[in-house]
Nucleic acid binder design. Sequence first.
DNA 1: CTAATAGTGTCTATCAGACACTATTAG
DNA 2: CTAATAGTGTCTGATAGACACTATTAG
Lengths: 219, 219
Amino acid sequence: MASKADYVYRDSSGRRLIDYPRPSVAVDTALLTLAPGDDTLSVLQVKRGGERGWALPGTFLHERERLMEAVLRSLRDKAGVRGLRPRQLHVYDDPVRDDRGWVLSVAHVMVVPASLLMTRSSTTRLMPVDGPGQMPYGHGDIIAMAVADARRRYQELPDPDGLLPDRFTVLELRQVHAAVVGRDLQKDTFRRAMDPHLIGTGEMTSGTRGRPAELFQRR
Amino acid sequence: MASKADYVYRDSSGRRLIDYPRPSVAVDTALLTLAPGDDTLSVLQVKRGGERGWALPGTFLHERERLMEAVLRSLRDKAGVRGLRPRQLHVYDDPVRDDRGWVLSVAHVMVVPASLLMTRSSTTRLMPVDGPGQMPYGHGDIIAMAVADARRRYQELPDPDGLLPDRFTVLELRQVHAAVVGRDLQKDTFRRAMDPHLIGTGEMTSGTRGRPAELFQRR
DNA sequence: CTAATAGTGTCTATCAGACACTATTAG
DNA sequence: CTAATAGTGTCTGATAGACACTATTAG
């Protein structure tokens, strides 16, 4: 183990400085989504260089960059997605989790509309969160924590991450929540729980089977 | 702004490497406690070098050290406390929050027994969380987030951080929770809410005013 | 008409909050 | 005895879950 004295330097004016070796810092983001017609959550994966296979989109933090900037940069460059606002989740700090060296990873999470992730390049894919395949860098753990975080937040408020568009029916909202929390939700109980957090627009759907539904917005 | 090419190097075998400048990584910990006879939360501060005054105990991460190791090291060296297990809270990443350079801070939080912090050296002090004084490095924000986190967790379970000893009365538990959440709690409602998470020991207090109280443990 | 979906009335079991009561100790 | 604290019975209002009912559309 290195002692403190190993890292003591002097600057040009002779002032005593201590500078320890620094870790690389990465950001990795679990973008969770609901493929059309699907009723379980999927996670976006991107193809990484080398033989590392599929992983979460991520990048190394650049000099004096904010974590959120790095997250948005990685999503733009690796997944072609813009305009998101992921939440910071947890720092993964096992010094051997990355075989390229000593790398801290700041994990992020957001639930997003599937339409944003439908660029369908050969370097991105969606995989179910309960079977995402083998992943490097401990990304499986990040996905598990991301899903748990999303479940907790979707228990409380209507679509807090904005997976749905501005206006939506209660059925659409319920289907999203059922997919996130991983079980069916009763329509009457669900509606009453969400009602205080919704604003009715007075506008109705049309052209659908059955009685038209009102469109709502988040309060 | 630097371009990616600025950071491309070759190792001894000519393999292409990219290495961006790395941030220093620090850990800072909000140790919240309840001074005897007090009914509001306090936070531990330590005297920092230079004219920076009172701040949260923290340290820089050493090479390949785990964040938790660094946290425990800083609490041992700067506050003389051992055996704690703080929770990771949030990464503060404003590149100008620390005038010594580019430093990420991983904030931690735990609620601890006041007896552990009573070393009473001239380099530590306890300050109320709602008026901790001016603090450097954005530590005021960390305290606010730490208190919010502790409040949320103490709403759900009895003394999750273990501020109390192994066995305690419901009154002691209620006083702790009232201090953490910042308001009085009714004794009957509180007892019924905590009851499913407690195990009675059958042992009773004695020598106190009034009827003896049973001692409980966490389930 | 029937099928399908939207939305609501209502019953029940549970629970938080509030109040009051009993229980047990010190002095 | 009184004062103080522990612990519980019980009422009430709110709410989640469940079921059933009405409402409104397509075809």
